[in-house]
Design a protein around this nucleic acid. Structure first.
Lengths: 251, 251
DNA sequence: CATGTCAAGATTTTCGAAAATCTCTTTCTG
DNA sequence: CAGAAAGAGATTTTCGAAAATCTTGACATG
């Protein structure tokens, strides 16, 4: 029930790593998942060195599967590999966050256009239910801003909503890029949890986008989507200044 | 001289794997490069099983660096990993080629817009010289259609031209995706070498795009670019029918 | 005092063999 | 004869130790 993704609509194209329910059958795969998760959730902090001995103990694997996992995650940019010097959790760069956000805006606009043209019944249904879940999660969060579990739940629902928007476009490559970018975006968003006093629950915007999409109104949907991204980016860049003042004051 | 890429304009963002001149200092990195190259050039054929014993001999490495290399290339989609069953060269799917082409059109349009807005002197100069090299390579190819070396040279110049177009946009993430997609596109293009009687040298189109970009005429540049992609896609889809007839007749 | 060299220790990378999993054939059963 | 079960062989995955590379700090040199 939790996994709406069914089987991949096509049997070609790049594979998505975010199907969190299907457990990999190899150690390397399992560790890659854990690494991604821990990095996105800041269990491993930006810039941190990833030494084999430590990670070996942490994940209870030998060096071979560990290295393989690190290379997988490095290909996605969440960790950085330097020959003969080891691996490092990708550092935080506010400019990069903006880059990721802009690119996401462009890619999701492309996707939503395709989905509005080609999306079938399944797409509509999944989108509707994804939004509903997102709304419920938003209500839960606003009831208790401090509950980390609820925020995490909201993050997952938020991702699935945007994914549901894009899914109808029928482009496996786009969905692949969506996946990679979203991981980074989520990491950045979580970075600000510490500083933001409130979660930015823009359910109104989400609903408007969804309705435009279901009305098959391409221009309206895209405009709303772009506005959504711009607003989020603006909000986050305000936080950025706040963070920079905070870290400057601390030193 | 050959490498125009200088240092990456930013020191954040995902790393590009196509800087072919800088030799990796580890075996795993070297083998990853070789694998990519061999797959793109069809030294390893689509769908082929990649067994460790064979590859170990071929590239003269042990299993550890080999696996690491395979995972790197798998993350890019050029090979496919299946747990406990091994690795396979990604099969050819014409629908995927179309997907890649459409996405490239969208991404490069996004990039060219950014480059026209933000591109500096370096961008203009690099673009100009990239085009000139492309033109020369095109002349060399048309002098001898069968010369594989010249075609390969043209492929490299073609990639560099499109890369030069995008480079000014200042988005490392976009350039990263460009890279990944271009590898796939090149593999598909080379797949048709066998069937196409002539290389499609659309230098006129390239020149027009470049001029529009240097004139900082966003709309004109994007329109020409989109037309360029559409034309190429159309040409290739015609070849597709031809290939499908040919392979159907063969069986 | 700045700078370069070298060795010891720490860390990463690679190898080769052991363990785990899959594949294919054979055999058994209904 | 169809289909399930079992075992041998092939292949992938994982481990642990050896080899290669990097880092640090002491020492020498200009």
């Amino acid at each position: 029930m939790r996994n709406m993704s069914k089987q991949p609509a096509h049997r070609w194209g790049p594979s998505l790593h975010s199907s969190r329910d299907e457990t990999p059958k190899t150690l390397a795969g399992r560790v890659a998942q854990q690494l991604r998760r821990d990095i996105i959730r800041h269990q491993l902090t930006p810039g941190e060195r990833l030494q084999f001995e430590k990670l070996s103990k942490r994940y209870e694997v030998g060096t071979s599967p560990l290295r393989e996992a690190l290379f997988q995650v490095a290909a996605q940019g969440l960790v950085i590999a330097e020959d003969h010097k080891g691996f490092v959790v990708a550092p935080i760069h506010f400019d990069e966050m903006l880059d990721v956000s802009n690119l996401r805006a462009n890619l999701e606009a492309y996707a939503i256009r395709g989905a509005i043209r080609d999306g079938h019944e399944d797409w509509e249904v999944d989108l509707l239910s994804a939004f509903h879940r997102l709304k419920l999660a938003g209500i839960a969060v606003s009831a208790d801003q401090e509950d980390e579990g609820r925020r995490t739940e909201w993050e997952d629902r938020h991702r699935e909503f945007h994914y549901a928007l894009c899914k109808g476009c029928g482009s496996p490559w786009l969905l692949h890029f969506f996946d990679e970018l979203y991981d980074h975006m989520e990491r950045y968003r979580r970075y600000f949890w510490k500083y933001a006093e409130r979660a930015v629950a823009a359910d109104g915007e989400h609903e408007a986008i969804m309705k435009a999409a279901l009305d098959r109104d391409e221009e309206r949907a895209v405009n709303l989507l772009q506005a959504h991204f711009q607003k989020q980016a603006r909000l986050t860049m305000n936080l950025r200044k706040k963070v920079e003042r905070a870290t400057a004051a601390a030193s």
